[in-house]
Design a protein around this nucleic acid. Structure first.
Lengths: 237, 237
DNA sequence: ACCTGAACACCGTTCAAGT
DNA sequence: ACCTGAACACCGTTCAAGT
């Protein structure tokens, strides 16, 4: 009964690259980059390593595919599709926050971005990010010859800031942890030689009280202000 | 003859954390993060793994110490000490370029920054970078309550951009390679669906011709312009 | 075409034993 | 106090063999 498996398409429990990538993302989310092993993967998928290697060339490709899957979801189904009504600045903020939160949910992305952005000719991630943010840069009235440079600066800030924030978040697992880490760092800065580190002494309290998302957005606004200053929109008299 | 080894200090060939870190940096520079193994390390230092573990807790600490060593050298003996005559903007550019070039010389730094910046209470790297750049932010006339946020944005851009550039450079070993990679990427962008990726089509040529350092500095200037716009110096009437 | 699972080379880390 | 080197658990990857 029900033996015509081929016609109806693949069986639900059949192995496929998608199912492997899905399991990889789950493992990465649960235990970080060191949590993704072929042993954990074969246990979760109830197979042997050979089966996985039939669908995937090696671990690097698997990490790349996991990164692609997460980022593509964030950028296509996510914020970019919503805020179609706002100013270019609003859309940039939304997309940036989407990537920020994605790295917050998947800490392993922080390290992966540095690796993935360099894949030449590259997966879908770099093109998607550049296209999405670049359109808004264009909409801001930046002249054509500065499109690439300006968009690059924006992308670098977003991925740099989001990545470093995620690294911080990884250390602090819970909210309480975060408070403790900030407190410890603040104390450490205050404990440094005041003659050698006057600036750190001056900002130790600001740093302890800061909110990650707020500060990330403040940085976005700073970059946006720079863009507008260097390339004033023609409409503004 | 010459048997009073203790008085004259440690023997030249004695193992020490510094010598281990030095060897680690050499291995990382030569073959990247995967080139640093305890086997390679013991061969280079002519010892066994146990000897290394006497001086270093684990591989993570070793990577951290290697990062600290390189960055501290760049920031203390390097550019920060030279350009003492220029404007704050000039000094920021010099320090930023110093970090940019350091990551260019030691590609493995790109991944390490994401990891190291999160070490709490952290090694000397984060304090040094924040102190060095923060002083210039202060000198630019940024009001006190914005010191931490502004400096953070600057640090995030510098490390983000430098890291992503280094990742690109890793793929392209030689200058010729770089041309080929840029060419391939440019072609790949042009091969995308023009309806879905109009912006990438428009910048494909700019991206092929761009110079890494030039573009990095253009991004710095963009951030500096943002700082000046949001926080105009009191002197400027 | 797709999967199994034993086998291989290599890795970080430990530790009893030496000096 | 510092170093040796065998041993351990684990890792990514391969491949002859199955279906």
């Amino acid at each position: 009964m029900a033996t015509r498996k081929q016609r109806t398409g693949r069986r639900t429990d059949a192995l496929s690259k998608e199912r492997i990538v899905e399991a990889a993302v789950a493992l990465l989310d649960a235990a970080g980059e060191s949590g993704l092993t072929f042993k954990a993967l074969t246990e979760r998928l109830a197979t042997g390593p050979g089966a996985i290697y039939w669908h995937v060339a090696n671990k690097g490709e698997l990490l790349g595919a996991a990164t692609d899957a997460v980022v593509v979801t964030v950028l296509t189904a996510g914020p970019a599709e919503k805020a179609k009504t706002g100013t270019p600045q609003d859309e940039i903020r939304t997309v940036a926050l989407g990537l920020f939160d994605a790295i917050g949910d998947h800490h392993w992305l922080a390290t992966q971005f540095a690796v993935q952005l360099s894949r030449a000719p590259a997966g879908p991630v770099t093109p998607l990010i550049f296209e999405t943010l670049g359109r808004q840069v264009r909409a801001m009235g930046v002249p054509r010859e500065s499109w690439f440079t300006t968009t690059s600066a924006l992308v670098h800030y977003i991925l740099g800031a989001a990545g470093q924030n995620a690294a911080n978040a990884k250390v602090a697992g819970t909210v309480t942890d975060r408070d403790e880490v900030l407190d410890a760092t603040s104390q450490a800065w205050k404990a440094l030689d005041p003659g050698g580190y006057p600036f750190l002494h001056a900002i130790a309290d600001q740093m302890r009280r800061h909110d990650d998302r707020e500060q990330f957005l403040a940085g976005i606004d700073l970059v946006l202000a720079g863009i507008t200053t260097l390339h004033p929109p023609p409409a503004a008299a």
